[in-house]
């Protein structure tokens, strides 16, 4: 499965949750599949989805699901120790690990070779780390939500992108409606 197929499958689970979504095509796909005020789309700033989500989870009680990418986590590896040492049980970091920089044309990342993000998360001190195959994403995500424990999910899937339009919504509109959804 490629990322967009996973997102289609888990859209019903994501719908009522606060979601912070990774830059580029992941956000375009989520926006096209099921735009919700509870979605925060990153239009720039590669790497910070996990940090934004953690700050949000620590600041308020609702569950927060971060849809991140292998390339973005690799560029902000310092996030893993911060996540591990500031435990928020309403925080789920779901890394779509397609082994590539998908948005920029599927150039391979090191996770397709020797590097294990699950292993790195564990070494950083994250206690609840699961690695799942694409077909099991929905089951694992629901289990993570129901478990009520801070979870890092590494979802192994194929590289590839769906053709979706760019997001033209103004960033302040995205942010404002998201904040209203958070506060409601």
């Amino acid at each position: 499965m490629i990322r967009s197929e996973i997102l289609k499958e888990i859209a019903p689970i994501l719908r009522d949750q606060l979601v912070v979504c990774n830059i580029g095509i992941p956000s375009q796909e989520l926006h096209a599949i099921d735009d919700q005020p509870t979605n925060f789309y990153m239009l720039g700033t590669m790497g910070l989805a996990s940090s934004i989500g953690l700050g949000l989870a620590l600041a308020q009680p609702k569950p927060v699901i971060v849809i991140d990418g292998d390339g973005s986590v690799l560029t902000n590896l310092g996030t893993l120790p911060t996540i591990a040492n500031n435990e928020a049980n309403n925080y789920i970091l779901m890394i779509i690990d397609n082994g590539s920089y998908g948005s920029t044309g599927d150039q391979p990342t090191y996770t397709g070779r020797k590097t294990s993000l699950a292993g790195m998360a564990r070494a950083a001190g994250c206690e609840n780390v699961v690695e799942v195959q694409d077909v099991d994403t929905g089951k694992a995500l629901q289990a993570a939500i129901d478990g009520g424990k801070m979870t890092v999910m590494v979802v192994k899937c194929d590289s590839g992108n769906a053709k979706m339009p760019v997001i033209t919504m103004d960033p302040v509109v995205i942010r404002d409606r998201f904040m209203q959804a958070v506060a409601s």
Binding site: L56, A57, V182
Partner: peptide, 17 residues
């Protein structure tokens, strides 16, 4: 661990109230 990471945390915390 890095200041851009810290700004991400701050952005999330602010959206969380």
């Amino acid at each position: 661990n890095k200041e851009d990471e810290g700004m991400g945390l701050c952005a999330g915390a602010w959206m969380g109230g």
